[in-house]
Structures are given as structure tokens and as C-alpha cells.
Design a protein around this nucleic acid. Structure first.
Lengths: 217, 217, 217, 217
DNA sequence: GATGAATGAGCTTTCATTCAT
DNA sequence: AATGAATGAAAGCTCATTCAT
């Protein structure tokens, strides 16, 4: 589409090294997909950014879609954020949120996928990964509605990623990390440690009572 | 692309009425854009759904992009959710979240835009709308970091919309509305009513205290 | 590929008539496919020859392959040659051979297909048509080995078409029609009217005897 | 394209022998070209079949087209069929037709070329070879229209090869050799030995007479 | 002698868009 | 007001071919 992108190095003629080339393609693809979405990114753009010929995308990845899968599968490590003490989850989120690899500029992998959900293969991959993450997170939560709460925790993370990277809400990125963490913790902790009353009081009964009529028609 | 969409009415030969035609186009476009995203939706799909000739899109809207802008601008009413008592914001969010207009099927307008942010004009529009919403919300918030907190509140809403509509996390849509509201309130209230001491005192203890109140209203 | 072809008319801007356009495309495609084969012919070539935009091929025919099918199916009329008295078959062959439409330059439709048998769909179509023709011709033949003889009659026609149009053996096209007919009749009649002896003498027995050992292992 | 071909031997690591390598390439190319045609055959297919690197095709043959030329030029021996008594030509045709070299699987070299006549160089080669064959055959024929009759004899052979190998008319291959020969002789002899009166007398009667002799040898 | 890396040109196809009626 | 015809540009992808090792 356009060519206003960080061509890696224009002088050196790219060493004939398969590993370096495919890595460069992955980096360029990650940045383009994150910035413009799957459909709006052309293989020619990616190749130009990586400083190589578009045909190499097919040599190394087989297709544009497989390249996308490789991008979102690379370094996908929900455990990185999920593992560890749960009450430090907000801290890890902030850290992860601010210490992102340069290629995927501040983009949560899920946010990256959100905007690329047009194609079948992409949607399926995304759904699977989202569900895995929700399940993994829910497994770490005690109390009722673990899955619902896990989904909301993820929603908070994904929403912040989307807003900052896609919508360009710079107040999120520009905020001092500790302020970000404080408020994120304030919002996230009630979802992680549901207050005692919620589990001790006969809320389970209440919930069922209340929900029965409208929830499952 | 495909044609499995609500063709308006096959019997009547569409009255030669500009207003009705452009309205039909807007409806069809909203549904398609929400379901498939901007790039994956073709003007021929939209026109076919509306039962009119694709050229009319250009007659009435000028371009596909302008049609998209018209769609996301129509009925955009952040005030609907923002207006009202702040401590009922979670309730309004849940209500709005569950009572969505039929055309934009269960899709938060922002989530709709998230996945369509490839093209320049679309991105710009979305950014503007997001910033307006953040600003409007921040204006209703007291205490420090109002804009940051507003962005996080929006992030929570957007994240939930994205997860449920794009990623298909059905636990969000299937949850009983009051459970959804309880947990959403638990997460959101600390961002709305930041406890006075939040900036000075060690917040871990405060936070729990603060969260208790909205969780059990 | 190249553009050394009979652009239809360069002055008039092609009347906006669907029928004329698709006919022009069919003509151009027939000529190109006949001259260069299916694979070596590009849709750009065809469109350029027809003086229209390549996209119209897809508007009117759906794909390159479907265009090809349309070409070989158009005016395919084996009956034209087969119908009529069998002893005038050579005359009809010559007539048909010499009175071809200008677009398909001297090309037997089967010869046209012969060189385009790469793609699956093309091969299948061709096989079907060849078998139909053989069967139709065999039905008109009396005596033994009707199908084999029919195949050989077809082979003679196809071979002449291939040699003259593909291999450029101009002695076939340049020959006076009556000389062509005389020799063609000389070769073809023994296949059409197998001499009495062949059917009356105990050749059937002979044949079987001879053939038994090697023919069906 | 696919890889369902006779990979030479997978155990031995191909000796670094130029002659063996180029021979392997020629064999693989002949099989592929015959089976799939020139355009549908890729140099990668050929190289994979031969078990070598595609670049070697360029080392040994210079280009895909030159490789094709080498294939069709190898063992081209029209004399094999043409040499010998003319009245045994049908027998030799049948023999040659049924005893084909294993590499060019059942494919008449001319039929092979017929379907590969797209590219310039290929067409030229084919035309030259066809003309040489016609000329050589015509030189063996007495009487009028020698070249025309030679072309028709060749057309019969080529047509049968094309029909059987390309169009899959199995009645030709499945026929008992002597039936094939009988009918082929019946059609071919009138072209070889043109009856003296053929040009002057009404030929219908003569023709039958002429044909009788070869049909029942 | 042989190979993996890299390239440029071309292909079929789709799409937003405009023109003429 | 509305439509079918036509177009230019670009997309994903494949292939023959060359380069460097």
C-alpha cells in the first residue's frame, strides 16, 4: 500500500541467511499487522519493510495467513503473565504492557488479532487462543464465577491494549507506570479476590434466583 | 462475498425513494461491517443486502469509507451510557451491553471500529470518537488521573465488547446479567470513585475496602 | 504476454453492449487458445485482443477456465459433421475443415483442446467430448470394430487439424479442396465401409484367434 | 506441482557425475512433459523427480525450454518408422505405437509436442521436425500429391497418438494389435499406393478395390 | 559439481469506482 | 432515481532464473 516504513538497512545487501531473513519478515509482519490489521496489510508491504522479495514470504511461511499465524504464535506466552502470585497480576500486566518487544509496538497479541478477525483461519486461531487464556486464568481464580471473572480480567487487559495501540489513546501509554499499576490493581483486584462476602453470603442462591428468569430464555 | 444476509424484501420492487434507499444501505452496511469488518465487506455485498445497485452507494455516500463513517456516526451516543449517576454506570453498561440494537448485532460500536481500523479515514474517525468519549467520561470523574481512569473504564467496556463479539467468548454474553453487573461494578467502581487515600496511603488495604461496597449493593 | 494480435477496432470505443463484449471475448479467446494453448494464454492477452478490460472476463465468464469451456462448447456440433450420409463424410470433413470461422483459425475444436489438456477441468471436458464423438460416430458405422474405426476416423480428422493448425503444415491447408477430399476419402472410406470380405469372410474367427493371446493379458 | 513420480533412488546420494545427473534430468523431464505438458511442468518438479537441485537444470541445459528441446530431440528417429518397405508402414506404425519407450509413457513424440506448442522455441522446433518428417515420408511416396499424402499419413499417426495418450481414448490402446493394424492399413494404404487412376477415373469404385488388398493380407 | 537463498516478472482474480443510459 | 457496463489498480501467489557459497 504505502511504503512509509522502517526499511531495516538500505546499505548492506542482507546476508544470505535464511534465519535472519525469516526473522526480519516476522518482525516486519508483526509491526504491519499490528498497525494496519491483517486485511489492510499486503505481503508486498511486509516484504518491503523487511527489505526482501515478497516471494520469500511464500518460501518461508507458505502463505500470508500462515505468516500471520506465525506472528501471533511467536512469543505467545500467556503463562508469562498468568504465572506467579495472583495479587501481583496487575504488576505483571503493567510490566508486560510496558516492556513489549519493539516490533509489536505496544500491542497485546490479542489486540493484534482483534482487528484481524476477518478471515476464517484468523478468527479460529484467535478464538482458540482467547479461550485457552480465559481457561488458564480461571483455573487460578478461587470463588464463584471464575470464568466470568477471568474473561473480565482479560477484557481489561485487551481493552487497554486495543485502546492504546489501535485507538491511540496515549494517556494510557504516557501515564507513569506506577499510576497505571495502582489504578489497574484497583480495578483488577476485586475480580481476582472476590471479597469474602461474595463467597460467604448466600449469594449463590440469590444469583440463581435473580438470574433464572432473564438469563436463559 | 456471500449472500446469506437479510435481503430486505424480495417482493416489492423498492420504491424510488432516496431516503428509504440510503437508510437500507446504512442498515445493510452496519450489519456487514459489524459481522465481517471493513476490509472483508465489499460494496457489492452491502448493495445486494440492501437490494439496490452498488452505484447508489456512491450516489448517496460518495465512497465506501464515507459510508462506513456514516454507519459508525449514526446513533453514536456515548452520552447514553455516560449520562446519569456515576455509581450506576456499571448498570448502564450492562444494560447497554445486553440491549444492543439489532442492526449492529451485539457489537460495541467501538469494537466494530477496532476491527476496521486499517484505512486512514477509519482510524482517524475512531481515534476522534475514542478521545471524545474519554474526555466526556473524564469530565464526570473527580480525583486524580481522571483521564487515565476514564480510559481504563472505557477499556473495560471495549474489551468486554471485543471479547464477546469478536473473539466469541460466550461466557460474557451467557452470564446472568446481575452477576455480570456485580463483577463489572466491582472492577469499575474503584476507577470511578477513587478512594481519597488511594494516592497517599498504601492502597492494598483500602482497595479491598473500597471494592466491597459496590460488589454487594 | 505479447500484443501482436488483431485488436478488433481501435477507433470506436466499443459499444456498451454486454452481448457484443462477451462475443468479442469468446472470439479473442478462441483464437488465442487455438494459437498458444490454454496455459500459455493469459487473460490479459485475451482481453487486449478483444479490446476490453480483463475484469470483464470474470464478469461474463467467471474464470479463465470457464471461459475456455465456453469457447470449446460454442458451436461444438459434432453432429454437423457426423449427420448425413456416411459416404459423404469425407466431403463434409473437408468442407468443415475449410469453412471454419475466422476466429478459430482452421482449428478443429478437438485439436484446440488437445494442446490445452494440462488443467484438470480442461482434460475432463475434452475426454468427455472425445468419447461422445467417438460413440456418436460408432453408432453410424456398420460392421465389426465400429468403435475402433470411429476412433481412427476421428484420429484422422484431429490429426489433420493438429498438423495444419498447430504444426503449421501448410500443405494441408494449401491443397486444392478436391485433392484433399479425394485423398481423405481414400483413407476414410475403408474405415467407414469396411469391405464386404471383412464382414462376410470368417475374419471374425481369424481375428479372435490372432488376438486372443496378446490382446487381453 | 505434485511429487508422485519416480524419484530415482532415495538411498544413494547421487554420485557427483555430470553425465548421470543430466541423464536423470532428461528422463524426469521427458516423463513430466509427456504427462503434464510443457507449461504445467515446473523445473522444480523435474529436479525433484531427478533428485537434484533445480539450479542444475540451468547448469546443464541453460533453460527450461532448452531442456525441452533436448528431450524431444533425444532419440527422435522418424527414420525408425519411415525406413523399410512402404507396404509394411502400417505394421511398423502399430509396432512403434505399442512398443513405446518407457520414459515417454505411451506418448508419440509429436503428440508430446502438440500439447507443448505454446512457447516460441517449442513451436519452431516442432514445426521443423514435422516438416522434416513430412518431407522424408513424401520422398518415399510415388505418384501425385506426395507431400499432401505424406502429411495425411502423419496426421493419422499423430491423431491416433494424440487421441490415445491425451484424450484417453482407450479403445485405441485396448484394441488387439492385429485389428488395429488391419484397419490402420486399410486407411493408410490408399495414401501410400495411390491407384493409378485416382486422379482421372471416378474414384469411388477404385477406392474400394484398392482398399481390399491391404485389409486382408 | 552442487546447493540454498534470493529475485523479478508475471499470473489469475477481486474490488472500489465511474460512465452512459 | 437507478442501473448495467466498463475500468484501473492492486492483491496473493507461482515460477523460471540467477547469485553466492
Amino acid at each position: 500500500m504505502d511504503a512509509d516504513s522502517p526499511r531495516p538497512r538500505a546499505g548492506e545487501p542482507r546476508p544470505r541467511c535464511a534465519e535472519a531473513t525469516s526473522a526480519a519478515l516476522l518482525d516486519a509482519a508483526a509491526a504491519r499487522f499490528a498497525r494496519d490489521g491483517y486485511e489492510a496489510t499486503s505481503v508486498r508491504d511486509i516484504a518491503a519493510d523487511a527489505g526482501v522479495n515478497p516471494a520469500l514470504i511464500y518460501r518461508y511461511f507458505g502463505s500470508k495467513e500462515k505468516l500471520f499465524v506465525s506472528v501471533v504464535s511467536r512469543d505467545r506466552d500467556p503463562a508469562t503473565v498468568i504465572d506467579g502470585p495472583m495479587d501481583e497480576l496487575p504488576d505483571r500486566s503493567v510490566t508486560w504492557f510496558h516492556n513489549r518487544p519493539p516490533a509489536i509496538a505496544g500491542e497485546h497479541p490479542l489486540a493484534l488479532m482483534l482487528r484481524s478477525a476477518g478471515r476464517e483461519g484468523v478468527s479460529d486461531l484467535m478464538r482458540a487462543q482467547v479461550r485457552d487464556t480465559v481457561a488458564a486464568l480461571a483455573a487460578r481464580l478461587d470463588g464463584p464465577d471464575a470464568e466470568l471473572r477471568a474473561a473480565m480480567i482479560l477484557a481489561l487487559n485487551v481493552g487497554m491494549g486495543a485502546l492504546s495501540s489501535i485507538a491511540g489513546v496515549d494517556v494510557l501509554m504516557a501515564a507513569p507506570p506506577d499510576r497505571l499499576r495502582d489504578h489497574l490493581a484497583a480495578a483488577m483486584m476485586p475480580l481476582i479476590d472476590v471479597p469474602d462476602a461474595a463467597t460467604t453470603t448466600p449469594q449463590g442462591a440469590e444469583k440463581t434466583t435473580t438470574a433464572e428468569s432473564p438469563a436463559n430464555p
